[in-house]
Computed example of a mutant assay.
Amino acid sequence: MTLDLLMTTVRENLPAAVGGTVAVLVLVFLAVQQARRRRVIDPSRLVPTAAPPTAEKAEAWAPPEQSYADRRGAVRREGSPVQVLVSSSSLRNAVNDAYVVDRSTGGLKIVMQAAVPPGSTLQVKAVNAPDTVGFVTLIVRSCRKHPEHFEIGTEFEKTPPWNVLLLFG
């Protein structure tokens, strides 16, 4: 009789019964995980994996030579090309289309049809940027010719806010 009463109660309150069962299972799982974390490790049972370095090795150690890419101050992020508008006095004050193909918090790599001499400045704005966002000033650091375009490496004159950086991809 008691089993029939229990089954009837469970059927009538199925969501509460399932929720209660899941809650109990989660609590048991968390208690087991907590017990595993509290296990104390006996240091005498640890086996050393390598011999400690000798004084000669420690004195002779030198850090590995860093490549040019490792010396960067900002992490470079590649991604989908983002179309931008570019303006510069070296472009005869015209606004040209270009694409950002590489970006970091330090600057942008831009691909465009016109060459820009290193040392000059560019004004850049993402095509999809809202009207409230202005142009960002970049200093040209390199300009490389490719068969169909020029690859221009730039540095931010002043790092723009994060929300503006995200507009460049």
Rank of each mutant, 00 (worst) to 15 (best):
S120L: 00
V136T: 11
S89H: 01
A74D: 08
Y99C: 11
G106A: 05
D70E: 15
V86Q: 06
T132V: 10
V100S: 11
D102Q: 13
G119N: 08
V136C: 12
P118E: 08
R72I: 07
V133W: 01
I110E: 04
L138T: 02
A129V: 00
R72E: 09
V127M: 11
G79L: 12
V86R: 09
V100D: 09
P64V: 10
V116R: 03
G134D: 07
S120V: 02
L122T: 06
A74M: 05
Q123R: 08
D131W: 01
N93T: 02
S90Q: 14
T137R: 07
L85H: 01
A114V: 10
P118N: 08
Y99M: 14
R92C: 11
E65L: 15
E65S: 13
V124R: 12
V82H: 12
R76K: 10
R77Q: 15
R77F: 15
V111H: 14
Y68E: 13
V84R: 14
S80P: 11
S87K: 04
S80I: 13
N93V: 02
P118M: 06
N128L: 10
V84Y: 11
R92I: 10
A115Q: 09
S67F: 13
E78R: 15
S88Y: 00
A115F: 07
A129G: 01
K125P: 03
Q113A: 15
D97V: 01
P64D: 14
